[in-house]
């Protein structure tokens, strides 16, 4: 008698667990659809053959690569004449190349600066350490945009705005990158201090410890810093638009892509939205692939460095 009630109870629990799991799977599938839908939409729209920025049906009726070709040849359908014409202002290849160049240089320099700052603040003890950390905390509370206008004047002063804007942008992105030391320092703090002490007893200098002990142990955080440093300038809109001052020749990809979906542009060119989608795919592809290869390190960085103060 008693055994059967126990069995019944077990069975009902099993059923309950099954139903909760089933509900959870349904939720997860719905979540996945919501999260993947925009990217799916981006890709199919970039392959749409019909002109007209908006369609009242979902799947394209004609599939084509023309949008990608027009993106790189800087051509578009004028909605007035219905003919392909060259877009004078656009130069996607240049935007892409410049953004890439900036991002690569910034990635390298910024990573070095962040590592170096984090090591000094994590491992060394000196009088100005705490005041310095507080200073950077306070500086970080100023809204970045206003100091950007000042930087713009400064760059104008040394002639790094117009055709030298690449150099100017690199300088600005790199300039205050030591303020991003926080996560990297959090990681360094978790490396046992006893390692340093043992090395110091053996006569190693601070420099040697940095290069021979700390850096080899910091692969995850180095990759994380590289990745985030690359993503910053790759997707920056605010400063890039400010420094370009409305001149399309000096845009980066973010500013260019935003222009493609401005109401005015959409009105003038009937394939602007499709070209935007194509550009979105081209811009996202390298970073997305890179991201998935290095995903493990990114997750380690987010979970490791950000939660230990």
């Amino acid at each position: 008698m008693e055994a059967t009630t126990k069995q019944k109870k077990m069975r009902s629990m099993k059923v309950m667990r099954r139903t909760t799991n089933a509900i959870i799977y349904v939720i997860l599938v719905v979540i996945s659809i919501i999260w993947l839908f925009p990217f799916f939409y981006l890709i199919i729209q970039s392959l749409r053959g019909e002109t007209g920025n908006y369609t009242n049906y979902f799947f394209p009726k004609k599939w084509t690569f023309d949008n990608y070709i027009h993106l790189f040849t800087n051509e578009g359908y004028n909605s007035g004449t219905g003919k392909i014409e060259s877009l004078q202002a656009y130069n996607f290849m240049t935007w892409y190349g410049r953004t890439f160049l900036i991002a690569v240089v910034v990635t390298i320099v910024q990573t070095v600066i962040v590592l170096v700052t984090s090591y000094a603040l994590s491992r060394m003890r000196f009088k100005m350490r705490k005041p310095l950390m507080n200073l950077m905390l306070i500086l970080g509370m100023f809204p970045g945009f206003m100091s950007m206008t000042a930087l713009y004047f400064l760059l104008q002063l040394i002639g790094l705005t117009q055709n030298m804007s690449t150099v100017g942008l690199i300088l600005v992105y790199v300039g205050s990158s030591c303020m991003g030391y926080y996560i990297c320092k959090g990681f360094f703090d978790t490396i046992p201090k006893s390692l340093d002490e043992a090395a110091r007893i053996d006569g190693a200098s601070r420099q040697l410890i940095f290069f021979k002990i700390i850096l080899p142990l910091s692969k995850p955080i180095i990759v994380y810093t590289l990745l985030t440093a690359f993503m910053g300038p790759w997707g920056d809109y605010m400063f890039a638009s400010l420094i370009a001052n409305g001149n399309p020749a000096y845009w980066n990809v973010a500013v260019g892509l935003r222009d493609m979906v401005q109401p005015q542009t959409l009105l003038t060119y009937s394939d602007s939205f499709q070209r935007f989608c194509a550009a979105g795919v081209v811009v996202s592809l390298p970073i997305t692939i890179l991201f998935f290869i290095l995903q493990r390190y990114y997750v380690e960085g987010v979970t490791g460095g950000s939660v230990k103060g």
């Binding site: 300039g175 205050s176 030591c178």
Partner: peptide, 29 residues
């Protein structure tokens, strides 16, 4: 500068950058 004062070597560059690209603009603002 490579040992007990290593922080000076490490931080000089970043701090010059910080002064020119963050502190100077904020004072300007």
């Amino acid at each position: 500068l490579a040992d007990s004062q290593y922080h000076k070597t490490l931080l000089t560059g970043p701090l010059i950058g910080l002064t020119i690209f963050t502190i100077l603009p904020i004072i300007f603002m």
